[in-house]
Structures are given as structure tokens and as C-alpha cells.
Design a protein around this nucleic acid. Structure first.
Lengths: 199, 199, 199, 199
DNA sequence: GATGAATGAGGGTTCATTCAT
DNA sequence: GATGAATGAACCCTCATTCAT
């Protein structure tokens, strides 16, 4: 693997674990079996490296999403697949959530100038809108549901649970990461979203 | 106001804005019109101060919640009030969300040993459970909804939207904080949750 | 016990353990079950407190020494008693050695202006000189031994061994504080000093 | 001279003068014409630097000692040379004594894990043991003298006098560092040790 | 592409001491 | 005699970044 790519991987781990401020350039370098100077050679600064990591992460989830092939499915089935995929993705990629939290802590400073990101997302909205329309026409879904709002609901149901798992486990005095708890949450989310869409 | 309290207030602001690693003890002191040394006098370390801030924040939201007087209301009305309150609280207290994100970034390290927090939350679960039962008996709500799962859904719907407002605004190319967007989200959440609970 | 005395005792322990720079006023106060402010009330500063501790320690060893009643004994017996006493005193009062080391590290800065100390020691020299003279006259001791030099030899034989016990144990790979090692050293010193004085 | 070496030299001076707690990293850096950061670059911490200084100092005295070439000399002559060398070394290297005092104040914490030190010293003990044996065989020295005990006596005679010169000068009201006092002490020590070894 | 050495600013924390009561 | 609150300076250490090769 190229030094550049190794740095990117190491940075993802580091940023995910410690946040932007907490991340250490030194640790990224040594984790990548590279030299600190190389980080500045390939990326210009810690912050630019952070943006690169963020873009790569977004690209990854969107790319996985595309392979769900939602366009040609029964509307209820399509929504269900998206719900389950989203939950599973966050579950398997907790680093993606901490990355987003970091970026939002910084008020989206790095993302602001990235046009790549915007472009990456319009297909998602389009797809979702099409599904909702088909569902409405077939009398399966209630009218007036906004695709962006729906997507945020789908993501939020999993995100909040998983991103805040430590504090939630503490305040509710349950292990939210126990296998049964996880499968319970997955079922709960599917019910919630699909029920909520019913006419 | 006491120096101790001034430090606590200043720390809330600072931690909310910059996270735990990004927060500067120096800034907290000067914002509190106090001396850096006093922070270590009243709290033992930056981390202990963080925990104190976190506990105070949790106490605040739970206290506000209690004044909703949910116990004696119609089940649907009670849920609606809780949904609206939760949304409104996050909207008005974005610092609470960044605090939680910080704590979870650190895997709940500070919260782990706080028994205050656990105790603070059992009434909430009790109240919600009672509401759900009454709703089920009156044939308003479907059976088998877990109060903790429901609470996480209610909170998650608002939290994800507001906490990630910068990245979401960017990727969906809309200003999520515009007044109309906000009221739209409030309505969306109410519909989602109440519909989802239908039999 | 008076607060003043409790502070003095606590300070002795603290200075002995950590040296002058390493000692903490805070710890002295809490060890004395007193208030930090009281230290400044009774003694004027950390350094003045250090001098007070030093003077008290010197007073203690000289007072114990006086009770040896060396004046009226056989010269060899008198020297032997002094040798054994000195060894035993250092053994039982390691704090006295660290105190002296601290003071000498600071080039005797605190002791310089204390006339109490000088006065305290002239009787010791007088006594030793008398013993040496009697020994010489009786043909037991060689001539020309200076009492101050002799005292420094007697003290040095024990001091170096005990004060440097940690480094010496390490470099010679033996536990110098094991009971047998200690009694061996006591015997060695007696032999050395008495043999050295022979005509 | 390399930055590393300059730091080491500066640190020796600083630690010798102020002890471990009293030493200031800042002063070491500026005395070495280096940057504070470099101290942590080459050595990991103030304490590790202290150990490095200590090891270098021990290496220095042992190396000088080896050039005395004691193995092939008349036993009395060999002891005399060692006595005089040891006195002279302490006289010229007061910093070595303060270093040892510091380390022992800290209960040998730094030295404990250094195997270099132990290895450095076994030749010394071997040499001394051989000299004593030859002296015994030739009827010059009394039997049963332990080489380690003897070495500690030789060192202790000079060490106590020089290390505690400030307090001793004060309590005995003499300038122990005056040239005549110094040469007097040198003679006294030689007499003491050689007399003490006689059969 | 890669590296070891260097840097200045500032990080959290602790110090001896004093103020006000 | 005694106390809790306050202070400013300075502590050790670490940061992201750059220089020279």
C-alpha cells in the first residue's frame, strides 16, 4: 500500500478515536509506519488531512448505499433495505459517526468548501424521492413525506443510539451493545419507520 | 454569583464550543473572571470539571422535563408534549449535544463512575412506561413498544438533525436552520413518532 | 500537642522525604492537621521553617550525645561508645541525613546565620579533645589526631553507608540494609576507627 | 559538540547545583544553547535525563579509577593511591556527590532499573579484593577485611567531609575548604585507612 | 520520496504566598 | 489563633509545523 494511503488509513483511526483536537500527528505518522514530514508532504496540514479523511468516509458509505439497488424494488422493501443498511453501516463503522461529530463541533468548517460532498449526495435524495412517490401512488405511504426529512429520520434512529451508546448505557443502566439489545434496536427502527410511513 | 458557579458556566460554554480536548483552561478562567488556579481549587482537574459540567447539564434537562407533568395527560397528548419539548430543548441547548458527543468520543470515561446520573434517569423511564401502558389499554398505541427504545427514537429524531446540522446542510444543500426548515422538522418528527405508535 | 509543634514535626518528615525544593507546604499543613496559613503565622516562610527544623534536629542529636557521659570513661571505651552511638543514631534517624544533604545542597544558606548551631557544638569538640589527650598520655592513641577530623571520620563511616544506601546497594549488588549487613558495618566501623587510632 | 551532549553537560551542572526537584528544564535548555523541546526529544523526561546524567557520572569516576593501574602495585601503595584518588576525585567533582545525594533522596528510584550500573562496578570490587588478599599474604594487612566495606570507608572519609562542608564549617567554626584544611584532611584520611588495615 | 533534528507557542497543572474575615 | 478563597508566576511537558539534507 502506498504511503499516502497508509497515512489516510491511520488518520481515519486516529481522528475517529480522539477527534480533531485530540488527534496527534505524531501518532498518525507512527501508525502509518511513516515519517511525520510525509504527512505534510502529501496533505498540507492536519486540517486538510482531516477533510481528506472525511471525504473518503462519505464516499465509502454512499458507494455502499448505491449497491443496494433501491430503484427497482417494491417501495416498502426499498425503505426496509435502506433502514437496515443504514443501521448496519453505523454499527460497523462507528468511526464515521465520530468523524461527523468532530466536523460538526467545528461548525462544518472543513466541509464547507468541498463541492465533492454536495455532488455525492444528490443521487441519494433523488432515489429516495422516487421511492416515496411510487409508494404514494400505490397507496402504501402517506403523502407529503419529504425525502430529506425521511433520510434524516432513518439515520437519526441508529445514529443517536450508537453514537451515544456510552452515555445512554449509563443513564438507562443497560448495555446497549449487547447482541440482543442491538437486534432489538434494529427491529424497533424498522417498525418505527415503516409504521410512520403508512397511510 | 459564586466563583465556583461562574467557572461552571464558563466551562459549559467552552466545552460545548471546543470539545474536551479543544477546550482551554485559560479561556475558561478568563471567561469566568477568575484565576486559572481557582479551577483546580474547586474542581480537581480539567476532566473533573468536565464531569461536573456534564452532570449539571443532565440535571437541567431532566428538571425541565419533569415540569411537563406528563403523568396525568392523555397518552397521545403526553407523547406529543415530550416530543415537542425534546426538540425544543435541543434546539435551545446545542451545547448539551456537543457535551454528549465529547463524552461519547471518550467512551463515557467520565460518566462511568457517576452514580448521580443513573439515579437521575429512572423516573423518566418509569413515566414513559406508564404512558405507553395507558395508551395500549386505551387501544391507542400498538403493543410491545419499549420505553427506552421510544425515548431514544424521540431524542434521536431531533438530535441527529441538530447536532449534524452543518454537515447535513452541506450535503443536502439546504439551510437546515432556516425558520421554515426548523418548523418543518418539528412537524415531521411529531408525525413520525405518533404515526409509528399507532396500532 | 501545640499546632506549632505539630507543624514542626510534619515539616521534619516532609523535608526529610522530599528535600527542600521537593517539600510541599500544602502537605506539611495537612499532615499537621493544620491550615496552610498557620505555617506562615508561626514561621515566616518555607525556608525559615526549614531552618527551624534543622536546628531542632541538631539539638536532638547533640542532646542524645551528651547523655553518653564520655568524659569519665576509659579513652578507648569512650571512643567506642561514640562510634556506636553515632552509627545507631544515623540508623534510627535517616531524616537527619537527608536534612543535612538538603542544607549542603543549598550551600548552607540557612545555617549560615544561625549562631545557635555554633554554640551547640563547641562542647562536643572539647569533650573529644580531652578524650584524645588522655588516650595519648596513656600511650593508647597515636599523637597528633585532630578531634574535629576524628569526629568527621566517625560520622563519615556511618553516614556515607546509610545516606547512600540505595545507590550503594545497587552498584555493589547487596542489600546494605539487611540485618546482617548492618551489624557487619557496625563492627567494621569500630575496628577501623579504633585500629586507626592505635600508636 | 552534539546537541545531545550539550544537554547532558548542562544537565549535570544543573542537577548538581539544584538537585532533581530544584533543577529547571528551562535553565538546562538555555545553558545547552538548545531548545526545551530537544530535551524531550533526546531524553524522554526530566527523570530519564537525570538517570542519563547519573550513569555518565558513574562511568566517569570508574573510568578514571581504572587508569590507576592498582593491580600490579605493592598492596599498601595500591591502597594509598586509591585513597588519594578518591579524595581528589570528590574534591574536583563536587557535582558527583550532590547527584548521589539526590538519587538517594529519591530512594534510588532511577538507578533501580539500570543494569549498566551494576556491571560497571564488579571490576572495582574484584580489584580491591585481590589487593587485600595480597596484603594479607604478605602480612601487611589484617585478615577479614571486606573489600566493599573498605571501599565504603575510603569513600566515606572524603565524602562526608566534602559533601557536608557547609554545615560542618559552620558547626565547627572552621573553613573546611581552606587549602591547609584540605591537605590536612587528605593526610588524615591516608593515616586512618592505612593504620586501620595494619595487622 | 524520505528523514532526523529543531522550534516557539502554549498545553494543563502546581507552586509558595497573601487577602479578608 | 484559625480559616477558605484567591493569586501570579512558573513548572514540566507537548503541540503542529518546518529546516536541512
Amino acid at each position: 500500500m502506498s504511503t499516502r494511503q497508509k497515512i489516510l488509513d491511520a488518520a481515519l483511526e486516529e481522528f475517529a478515536r480522539y477527534g480533531l483536537s485530540g488527534a496527534r500527528v505524531e501518532r498518525i505518522a507512527s501508525r502509518a509506519n511513516a515519517n511525520k514530514r510525509m504527512i505534510y508532504y502529501y496533505f498540507r496540514s492536519k486540517e486538510d488531512l482531516f477533510l481528506a479523511v472525511l471525504e473518503a468516509s462519505y464516499a465509502d458509505i454512499r458507494s455502499a448505499e448505491r449497491s443496494l439497488d433501491l430503484e427497482h424494488r417494491d417501495p416498502r422493501e426499498a425503505v426496509k433495505r435502506l433502514v437496515e443498511f443504514t443501521w448496519q453501516y453505523y454499527l460497523e463503522h462507528p468511526e464515521f459517526m465520530t468523524l461527523l461529530n468532530s466536523e460538526n463541533l467545528h461548525k462544518g468548517r472543513h466541509v464547507r468548501n468541498s463541492s465533492r460532498l454536495r455532488e455525492m449526495h444528490s443521487p441519494l435524495v433523488g432515489t429516495l424521492r422516487a421511492i416515496l412517490r411510487r409508494g404514494e401512488k400505490q397507496g402504501l405511504f402517506r403523502r407529503g413525506v419529504d425525502p430529506v426529512q425521511l433520510y434524516i429520520s432513518i439515520a437519526g434512529e441508529g445514529y443517536f443510539y450508537l453514537s451515544n451508546r456510552y452515555t445512554l448505557s449509563r443513564i438507562f443502566d443497560r448495555d446497549l451493545m449487547a447482541p440482543r439489545a442491538l437486534s432489538g434496536r434494529a427491529r424497533h427502527i424498522s417498525h418505527m419507520i415503516l409504521n410512520a410511513l403508512r397511510t
